[in-house]
Simulated scan of single mutants.
Amino acid sequence: MKKLINDPKNVVDESVAGFALAHADLVTLSTEPLFIARSDAPVSGKVGLVSGGGSGHEPLHAGFVGFGMLDAAVPGPVFTSPTPDPIIAATQAVDGGSGVLHIVKNYTGDVLNFETAADLAEAEGITVRTVIVDDDVAVKDSLYTAGRRGVAGTVLVEKIAGAAAERGDSLDEVATVAEKVVAQVRSMGVALTPSVVPHAGEPSFTLADDEIEIGIGIHGEPGRAKISLEPADQIVDRLLEPILEDLPFESGDDVLLFVNGMGGTPQIELYILYRRAAEVLAERGITVTRSLVGNYVTALEMQGASLTVLKLDDELTTLWDAPVQTAALRWGR
């Protein structure tokens, strides 16, 4: 294992500290307990948005803290949920008097710890709503979940709900928009190589040189099947078919197509995947009106990618286009 780290026990603390220094115009850092908040939090009268989860998926979630997106992000240890204490602290820090929305990926630890934090916040008079993201069509249950996993679609939920909050929607209205995105977004991924968790020092799973894993989770948990490496177009077809069948997506739909890298995948390969996915969608009469390509929800240095398709309407398109200013996503300001 070769990694640019010091002590494996300090990886998250040191990384988050560096992130806060690099983006001091956007965020502030709390170390006891650990969370990142937007620099102007709390914003009076605005619904606060809090998300978080295990580290190792950067830029998710801290990279999406800022105007038009999250108000706070709570990083846990690598691939491990944060405890309720920093979640409640982040919730308190961003409460502007209009309530707080928790956006939670569907992993058992995340769900339980955010639920506990929400109960504690409610006891202190902060109104909290929770939206669970479960966009992965690969498996119903995994090592980490009861039900479908929350994966790259989380970015789209955070962006669109963040825009709704920024325009002044109420807590119930922001939650409804977030739930609408969850209902209309589907994802599936593939791994070419495993990742190495710093404190473990060895790959989280094994693949032969000519093997790939279809339907992998963002922690390296197993997917649908190990198969021999195929050309990129065939891999896209394998990922896209179950996505399109699941909702289902239909001719005449407008969609956002999101090709996400898992951390070790270069842009040149991601755009090859995007080309094929857009081609397949066009053949089915589905129009890609918005797109996102890049490493946004990663699994450390894993080589691989995921495809995400969101069915759009006028409201979701307007909210996606709304200005955003975060470390990892910014336009319109």
Rank of each mutant, 00 (worst) to 15 (best):
D210Y: 02
E202L: 08
L192V: 08
V196G: 03
A200D: 13
G150A: 03
E230M: 11
A200P: 03
D210H: 12
I227P: 04
S204G: 08
V155Q: 09
E221R: 02
I235W: 13
T176R: 14
A232P: 09
T193L: 01
I218R: 04
R186G: 13
A183H: 15
F205A: 10
A225I: 06
D237V: 07
K226W: 14
Y144L: 15
I212R: 04
E230W: 12
A138C: 06
G223C: 05
A191V: 09
V196H: 09
R149E: 02
R238K: 15
D233A: 11
L207H: 04
E179R: 07
T193M: 02
V197Y: 03
V151N: 10
E241M: 05
R224P: 10
D233M: 03
P203T: 10
E211T: 04
A164W: 03
P198F: 00
L229F: 14
E241N: 10
G189K: 05
D237L: 02
I227R: 08
R167D: 14
A183N: 07
A175Q: 13
E241P: 13
D172E: 14
K180S: 12
I218S: 07
H199F: 12
E211G: 13
R149D: 01
A232V: 11
D210P: 05
A138V: 09
V236N: 03
D141W: 00
K140C: 04
V190I: 06
V197L: 12
L240T: 06
T176K: 12
S195F: 04
E173A: 08
L192A: 09
A163P: 01
E221F: 03
D141Q: 02
Q184D: 10
S228M: 05
Q234P: 10
A178T: 09
E221H: 01
F205L: 15
E158K: 12
G189W: 04
H219T: 08
A175M: 09
R186N: 05
R148N: 10
A232C: 14
S142I: 00
G217V: 07
E221K: 02
G153E: 03
D209T: 10
E241A: 15
V236W: 05
G201V: 01
V139E: 05
A161R: 07
G223A: 11
V196T: 06
I227D: 12
G168F: 01
D169H: 14
V185W: 09
K226M: 09
L156D: 10
A178W: 07
T145K: 00
T176F: 15
A178D: 11
L207P: 15
L171E: 06
E230S: 07
S187P: 15
L239R: 06
A200E: 12
A208F: 14
D141Y: 00
G153Q: 03
V182C: 04
L239H: 02
S228Q: 10
L192H: 10
D233Y: 01
Q234Y: 08
E230Q: 07
L143H: 09
